[in-house]
Design a protein around this nucleic acid. Structure first.
Lengths: 233, 233
DNA sequence: GTTCATATTTTGATTAGTCAAAATAAATCC
DNA sequence: GGATTTATTTTGACTAATCAAAATATGAAC
């Protein structure tokens, strides 16, 4: 059984290697895990001995297939737990990340499967982050962001890629959650400001940096009245 | 924040001190925690430094009110989690103890309260073990057991005080769970054997030792048709 | 092609929790 | 009351995970 520490290292390597060639630098991993770089070097060598990662000295670290499988399981636990906390226990979506951070290391595969069934086999968590499938498939679909999509085009938010409480609370207060329909009214690159227009005509100003954290897809007519995800009964 | 290890020490001290003067011997604690006695001595001294227990060298250890409060919170988490796993996730009651053993250290007080509400503020877990109240009250009602109650008297099972998988599976297969009505048909002390008669007239043989683990109360007429606890909706 | 800045690795030390085995205190038994 | 058994404590050592700070590569700049 992998320790919580090992599970965390693998999870962070997985997240940092998303959309790259797979090699993660020691420094990036260290700051992601909030430990000093020397600690990471030591730990990564131990993980390499255990066959969970491949370590290229002075270049970076990469998951082996075994390590990737374990990391995906941890990520699946994390995101299903978040979904449970929001949909069933009605917790604030800004609070659930920290909770899930603990619970992901404590729930068994059996409980995981039962939670999955209870929730109706969701494919994304409350932030829109994709939930790895039971057999280790992780959707890596590429979306536009509010910083890059065409102005005036009706879009729907599919994902908010930021876990900090502050950002999520702000997003919630301004109705910027997966499922929300809106369009970019204006984008001022020199001022770094994006103005959004929501359904009722209400406008919301947003920094370009924040807009880049919000992923969107083109609004589909057929899904115009799609309700927000319901908690399971 | 107390570590899982500290929480476990406190929980075991609490359970071992139930119904005694409160002093728990080092040896009893060591075997309960499955560590060697020397480890317990070391750890108990650290807990005493932290104000969670009072250590009387060569005599035993006792919770302080702060330690007792923490232990009760852990026990409350354990038993509410067990209830959730059985009532909501429909897990086998023999499997939930080990799961809860992990989860009790990972769930926050906020999640605890929400689980409690979701489950309808239960007062006992699926084994009939009392759930400490939010403010630290733990029912210590004394019951008769199938080894001690009067033969022929109609009784109802209220609690099964044994967590081993094997025992719980046996009990389930023979319909010996909280809520079951039955009576002791015969008790043979020399053979160490108890024979139970269940509702449909079916009889079940049981060792005296096992019978002592099953707590009962006199059958109340008004509760004859009391249904088994329902999972929350 | 040296020099410099930066990232990485190494080294030595620390903390929490544990075990094995020796030392000590307490209780019991003629 | 001295000898023996039993529980407890002490001592020394170990593992996992970490940090601080020194040593070492690597790549960029001049």
């Amino acid at each position: 059984m992998a320790s919580s520490t090992v599970e965390n290292y693998l999870k962070h390597i997985l997240l940092l290697s998303e959309g790259t060639d797979g090699l993660v630098s020691m420094g990036a991993l260290a700051s992601s895990l909030a430990v000093v770089p020397g600690t990471v070097t030591t730990m990564v060598k131990a993980l390499a001995d255990g066959g969970l990662v491949a370590h290229r000295p002075r270049q970076g670290v990469q998951l082996t297939s075994e390590g990737r499988h374990l990391a995906l399981t941890v990520l699946r636990k994390h995101r299903l737990v978040e979904t449970f906390l929001v949909n069933v226990l009605k917790m604030d979506w800004a609070a659930v990340h920290d909770e899930a951070e603990q619970l992901e290391h404590a729930i068994s595969d059996d409980v995981l499967d039962r939670l999955d069934a209870l929730l109706g086999h969701p494919t994304a968590d409350p932030h829109g982050d994709p939930i790895p499938s039971r057999h280790g498939k992780l959707s890596s679909q590429v979306y536009a962001t509010l910083a890059t999509c065409a102005a005036g085009r009706p879009v729907r938010i599919v994902r908010v890629t930021e876990q900090s409480k502050e950002f999520l609370q702000f997003a919630e207060q301004n109705g910027l959650q997966p499922g929300t329909s809106l369009s970019v009214a204006d984008r001022n690159l020199t001022a770094g400001l994006v103005t959004l227009r929501k359904a009722a005509g209400r406008t919301v100003p947003l920094s370009l940096a924040a807009a880049g954290k919000i992923l969107v897809e083109p609004e589909k007519q057929s899904a115009r009245f799609r309700p927000k995800p319901e908690p399971c009964s």
